[in-house]
Design a protein around this nucleic acid. Structure first.
Lengths: 292, 292
DNA sequence: TCGTTCTATGTAGGAAAGCTTCACCCATCG
DNA sequence: CGATGGGTGAAGCTTTCCTACATAGAACGA
């Protein structure tokens, strides 16, 4: 019925953003509704449930299920939430990068999409989930971060940052080593898995192994209901407004970094002196010998 | 403006404003409703007509009449209109993270600082520099990206992204290997060095070696005038609004990622089909075997 | 290949919300 | 002092929303 991960999305989160994070987990008819809502949000708030079902060639029941999936008690609540949301709808319009765009246009489009991803993430990232992640991280005997492909870079980044504030973290970027390492974890340890799609086989497998070993499992992904969130105890969501280049979707990773920053800041604050001293040691070591 | 013509208020006018305009013409019970709506607009949108009638000691009929008077067909329409009207006010925050900040405050501050860094970067990053970097990258026989410490993660990321669009790039993350590799470069090759501070000894050294070998040297840094920009032929600048935790400055890296995204998009666009095919190959290889 | 299970979806009926009607109350005026 | 008329709420009607169940199709196993 429900996945082990609780509080995937923030309570008052933007409706449209929520829809996007759930997109992959939507069934055909639900998808039709999602498309309509994303396409005509301003119209939708004036439609009755029957009208919406009509226009999307689905049934009222499916609309209700769709509303529930987004976390609202029913259709009316979804409509109100969407209406409340809509004022600022600097809608996530297609940030298509056109063949004749010059450098300046490319620059603005990408930076705007990145900014959009960040504000979406502010709504999407659940305080509760962050809180529980911090709880687990600050007391962990050992922390491992997993990522492959594009997410290996993010994992690397998470390692660099959390290590600096004194947490016992290592990054494991090889899929084989990930499972081998995960199986050695124990209760109280933490595994942090990073996968934008949430469906990366190797990463999900590693996290599952860690869970079986008894570790607390955290995932960082874009998709609220994906294989990885079903394995994780705690799901951290980072939005990514897609940009298309010649029909190809590219997903930015800036929001993921921001989430890691939030984790790090929250951990540092919780550990107070211990983290500040760790930072200080790092700074001294670097500035002495590694800088001009 | 007190013309006898109908429609004294503008069609899309704010609900609350309308109520005030009509206040004098309201009867006692309607007045009670008006007061409630003006006092608790945010609550009102979640109330049913019966609940609102209850709370104002009036009847459903009166609520309907009230809605009509304001120019809406019924109560639901009024609710939607009010919700559309309501601005969820977000004040801007200081960047200092205080010891007693809760998770929500940390989240907002970090995300706002990141957004700030991005808009700063939009101004800071020179179109000309990006253009020249792209010119060099798309024709390079070999591209090497250097980064150590925190910037190693960014370098890793640059590699992952530019490799995907088909550029002959490798990341070299070990300082010794960096110089050893740099010395092998030739004119027409490109070295891309990443250092937030611009003063990282190892990275600067590697870039200097690459320059001596005849390669085109690009740097990505936060500091316009730093040892690394003096070595590089092309300087790409990424802003970073500092956030302080207990007196320690933490610099976000989100803007650096965005700059890399810009580079990648611009290169992809320039190389057109070659890059799109490269992306397509990557996508196929992944979705076939690596995803659920 | 055939049944079995499971999941996705729609249908139909019931609950609740929204809306209309009408009778009552009270004030005002002839 | 009765007549008139507008403001109001109770009760019933209609629409909207939601639930429970049935069905169809896919996935699975034998």
């Amino acid at each position: 019925m429900t996945s082990p991960s609780v509080g995937a999305t923030e309570r008052g989160a933007g409706v449209l953003v929520r829809i996007e994070t759930l997109a992959p987990s939507l069934r055909e008819s639900e998808r039709k509704i999602a498309d309509y809502v994303l396409g005509h949000p301003a119209d939708m708030v004036h439609l009755s449930i029957t009208e919406l079902a009509d226009r999307t060639d689905t049934s009222e029941a499916t609309v209700i299920r769709f509303s529930r999936k987004l976390g609202y008690p029913g259709y009316s609540a979804l409509k109100i939430a969407l209406a409340l949301d809509l004022h600022s709808t600097t809608a996530s319009l297609p940030d298509e990068i056109a063949p004749d765009d010059d450098i300046s246009a490319i620059k603005s489009k990408i930076i705007e999409a990145s900014i959009g991803s960040l504000s979406d993430t502010a709504q999407l990232l659940s305080d509760d989930a962050v809180g529980r992640a911090v709880d687990a991280l600050v007391v962990a005997r050992r922390i491992e971060v997993y990522g492959v492909g594009n997410s290996a870079a993010t994992a690397h980044d998470a390692y660099a940052l959390l290590m600096q504030i004194g947490l016992p973290i290592v990054a494991v970027l090889d899929p084989h080593l990930q499972v081998m390492s995960a199986v050695q974890l124990r209760p109280g340890d933490v595994a942090l898995a990073i996968s934008v799609s949430g469906s990366t086989r190797d990463t999900v497998e590693a996290l599952r192994t860690a869970r079986d070993a008894g570790a607390t499992c955290i995932c960082l992904t874009r998709h609220a209901r994906s294989p990885i969130t079903r394995v994780a105890h705690i799901s951290l969501l980072a939005a990514a407004r897609p940009r298309t280049v010649g029909g190809h979707e590219l997903l930015g990773r800036v929001a993921q970094l921001a989430v890691i920053d939030v984790l790090a800041a929250a951990c540092a604050l919780r550990r107070q002196d211990a983290s500040l001293q760790a930072l200080e040691r790092g700074r001294k070591a670097i500035s002495a010998s590694k800088r001009y």
